[in-house]
Amino acid sequence: MTPWLDCSPAALLLSLEVAGVVLVLFLVAGIALGYALSQPIPFRNLLDALVSLPLVFPPIAIGFFLLMLLGRHGAVGGPLHERFGWDLVFSFPGLVLAAFVAGLPLVVKPIQSAIEGSARELIEVSYTLGKGRLATLFLVVIPVIRRHIAAGLTLGIGRSFGEVGITLMLGGNILGSTETLSLAIYNQVLDGDFACATRLSILLGILSLGLFLILRRLGRL
């Protein structure tokens, strides 16, 4: 292990694993929600508000409410634990959920506004030319707004990497188990090891920048 990681060796790998899973989730849910929210669907405003909530609501409070909901004694987490033995909190799924909730609005909003703007007329043309919603999504929407998708993913993943508040609540900050890179920096600062915190911060910055450059390049294709 390089001296960069000797203070928290598992954190980088865990953060990359979380980012990998969340990237796939963002891709599917971000496009689906962005497309759905640009259409006249029932309860559109409610769905829009729920997706946008993490932009305006304090992350620590969102994390707390999700912990209450998804914990072993929560309305959702309780039955899942009893019936299937699933634990969503203080585990890898909890970290994924935290990163997903925090970054989702940053993925959905650029996609939604691109569809409502530049893609709207093209969608209508596609409909009049005999294509349904799904065919229009794959043949028109995704190719036309691919740059916006890349931009949304960049923002979402960047936000996920830096997520602390919700992750702290849902992940539990268990050393060696649910300690992501951001939480490792937080822990090192609490321990007074500023040299290690500095190294991890630079690493996180390089990681985010690298991902930004890759996604930007993909968006240009």
């Binding site: 007329e121 209508e124 043309v125 409909y127 009049t128 030319l129 005999g130 294509k131 349904g132």
Partner: peptide, 10 residues
């Protein structure tokens, strides 16, 4: 719209 068989030129 897709079932109306309309050619619409924007």
């Amino acid at each position: 719209p897709r079932l109306r068989r309309v050619g619409l030129m924007f």
